[in-house]
Design a protein around this nucleic acid. Structure first.
Lengths: 132, 132
DNA sequence: CCGAGCGATGTAATGTTATTACGATGCCGT
DNA sequence: ACGGCATCGTAATAACATTACATCGCTCGG
């Protein structure tokens, strides 16, 4: 169960399901997995996800409409996060790049754009899949 | 009508609707706008969008599930494109950054990741909205 | 103790976005 | 004329997300 202080029962269930799956998971897939734990409606999943994302424990992959557990949940720092998503096997690689972050923040500053959230997602084929 | 050679009637209608709107537009909103021109089903819109995106005339905004006409349709070069999206007024600013592109391509090369598409979207508040 | 306030929860209904399946049409080269 | 191929039309359905409203349980001031 790996209960975490601060997290409610539903949040814990969703987070554990995400960590178990090791890959992008849709809200409805989470719902199905959690039916045996009493989940009945999409909203239960979405509410938990919302909090988890707020806490930085989960990321949303916009280009897939799905979710992954954060790979570095203990870094409170990771300002900007980028993802490399394999279209073949679904594997997701999460990483940060200070230069990219600086450039994008620079653009925002130059244009008086007040940045609230940044999404960077690369789609393609991972090394493993290319080898095969 | 601004007919473009190569484009079919439906593609032209969708592209013109997108250019007229000057802002992100959802597929279903396009469908509604085009009903008077004979559109009946979502697929007509999605099919046209698919081609237009392929041709680089339209971009999809993943974080909004919507679409915009490309700001630089004549540059055949724009390898990587980034967007700044104002959450308040919906304005979208499209730009490119060679450094960011180089860094992301570098990461991909280092990890033997074969890149097919990259999404960069910044959400926040634009200068105009901040001033008001 | 009691009740107001508040966050988390449960449930249903609905709204929005995207795809699958199948058939018909139009155009082009032989 | 005919085959091949891209486009198009239509219906149905799947997948993703939100709104609305009622309830529960806890804490804090009175």
């Amino acid at each position: 169960m790996t209960q975490r202080h601060d997290l409610t029962k539903n949040q814990t269930l969703v987070l554990n399901a995400l960590m178990k799956t090791e890959g992008p998971t849709s809200a409805y897939s989470l719902l199905d997995q959690l039916r045996e734990h009493g989940f009945r409606a999409p909203l239960q999943v979405y509410r938990a996800l919302e909090k988890l994302i707020e806490l930085g424990l989960v990321h949303r992959l916009e280009s897939l409409n799905s979710f992954v557990a954060c790979a570095h949940p203990h870094d409170h720092k990771h300002g900007l996060v980028a993802f490399a998503i394999c279209d073949n096997c679904g594997q997701v690689d999460e990483f940060s790049d200070a230069t990219v972050e600086k450039r994008l923040k620079g653009w925002a500053a130059d244009h008086s754009f007040k940045l609230s959230k940044t999404t960077i997602e690369m789609r393609g084929a991972c090394a493993n899949c290319l080898a095969a």
